[in-house]
């Protein structure tokens, strides 16, 4: 069922898009529409106004700062992200996550903004951005803010986004010498959601000492999960025992439920295993 008075708007500027969203309490943003179309089709959402961001100017660029930071516009597609030379160089985990989402048709349409706001905990992009300490720039009726992604997800398919707010840009801070990786395991077809995905980012000094580390998981709970124990690798030359401690913390933090992709216990074991693999890949 869709509202009989449903309308489709195609604003050309961010200001117009925000006005269109604020103008109807039942308005929703459409990025690539890959999830919106599905939800509409199955009657899971009943908006009255679709505000498509596809023609909004200025949201479709990837910019690399001189310091090695990245600014990624909200309508950049996952296919553009996966193919971007600066993203592959400065934040490989992000390119790897984007390049593994679904199939080429999903990646050609799905946007960074939609991939963040959809907030399905099995999605690939959120853990990569969490591990990279990214922030999301948000614009809305109350102005602009830029919270760290760490507090962005508040529950299953819930975020801090207020009605009529948009993600306009995602910023990935510079990390000189940072290594990052995203690995995932899909028990069904390659295009399926992962049972577990793991993103790791590790910074080391010239002597090999870890100066910062982060790890985040997809599929391990109601929200994408940051594992704070990874931060304790800082100040060390990590040995297998240190990696094992983070893997144990990941298993303990995983609150995944049993479903067709595996039992809760299996997913906990997989959270530990893919934590090990992601950290080793950054440390080897």
């Amino acid at each position: 069922m869709t509202a009989a008075d449903l309308t489709f708007r195609s604003p050309a500027t961010l200001a117009e898009a925000l006005t269109e969203l604020a103008g109807d309490e039942d308005a929703i943003a459409v990025g690539g529409g890959t999830s919106v179309a599905l939800l509409l089709k199955h009657g899971l959402i009943e908006p009255r106004r679709l505000v498509w961001l596809g023609r909004v100017g200025g949201l479709g660029e990837i910019q690399a700062g001189p310091d090695g930071s990245l600014a990624i516009g909200a309508t950049v597609t996952l296919r553009e992200l996966a193919a971007s030379a600066p993203v592959r160089r400065l934040a490989p985990a992000l390119a790897e996550a984007a390049g593994q989402v679904g199939n080429p048709r999903v990646r050609a349409m799905a946007t960074v903004g939609g991939a963040l706001a959809h907030a399905d905990p099995r999605q690939d992009l959120p853990p990569a951005l969490l591990a990279l300490a990214a922030t999301a720039r948000i614009a809305g009726p109350a102005g602009e803010r830029e919270p760290p992604l760490a507090g962005f997800y508040t529950g299953f398919m819930e975020t801090v986004l207020a009605p009529a707010e948009l993600v306009t840009q995602v910023n990935v801070p510079a990390g000189p010498g940072r290594r990052s990786v995203y690995l995932r395991f899909t028990p069904a077809s390659e295009g399926d959601f992962p049972v577990i995905g793991a993103a790791a980012a590790v910074l080391r000094d010239a002597g090999g000492l870890v100066t910062g580390a982060a790890l985040a998981l997809a599929g391990a709970g109601p929200v994408p999960l940051l594992i704070p124990a990874a931060g304790e690798l800082a100040g060390r030359m990590p040995a297998e025992a240190d990696i094992e401690a983070v893997a144990a913390a990941a298993a303990a933090a995983a609150t995944a439920v049993s479903d067709q992709r595996g039992s809760a216990r299996y997913k906990q074991a997989m959270a530990a295993e893919w934590t090990r693999r992601a950290l080793r890949a950054c440390l080897e």
């Binding site: 599905l38 080429p104 048709r105």
Partner: peptide, 20 residues
């Protein structure tokens, strides 16, 4: 599958209005 510009899309999940 169809091509919209140079992008492959699932036309079962593509809002026709976006093809303007």
């Amino acid at each position: 599958s169809v091509l919209v510009g140079d992008r492959p899309v699932s036309s079962c999940l593509y809002l026709a209005a976006c093809a303007e």
